[in-house]
């Protein structure tokens, strides 16, 4: 198991949002370099805003729900990736995705 550490201060501001789209979402999780930054139930849009280091950052999103429910992932990294949105679908009640910034 990777040791968790807080994201190091840097020059990039990141906003990460997860929102239910269709079906039933139970839990939203988001990790930045293995540090849990978002943990909430899936009944509404959940966001995290923080400063991430200039070096490569790994974002991991884990979503639990029922069946093929859909959720929206929004990444806002001003100056680099403004408002990147994805609609993703669970498979048998679970989905995870990793993005490197």
């Amino acid at each position: 198991m990777a040791k968790q550490s807080k994201p190091k201060a840097g020059g990039r501001k990141l906003t990460l949002s997860l929102a239910p789209v269709k079906g039933s979402i139970t839990l939203f999780y988001a990790f930045v370099n293995d540090v849990k930054v978002l943990w909430d139930d899936g009944t509404a849009k959940r966001s995290w805003t923080g400063i991430i280091p200039d070096t490569q950052v790994r974002i991991k999103v884990r979503v639990v729900g029922i069946g093929a429910a859909e959720y929206g992932l929004n990444i806002d990294l001003p100056g680099i990736a403004n408002d990147q949105s994805l609609n993703l679908q669970l498979q048998g009640g679970y989905h995870e995705t990793e993005i490197t910034l």
Partner: peptide, 11 residues
């Protein structure tokens, strides 16, 4: 209380 991590498969 939540014990879920990025590395462990368990939620």
């Amino acid at each position: 209380r939540d014990f879920t991590t990025a590395a462990s498969p368990l939620i």
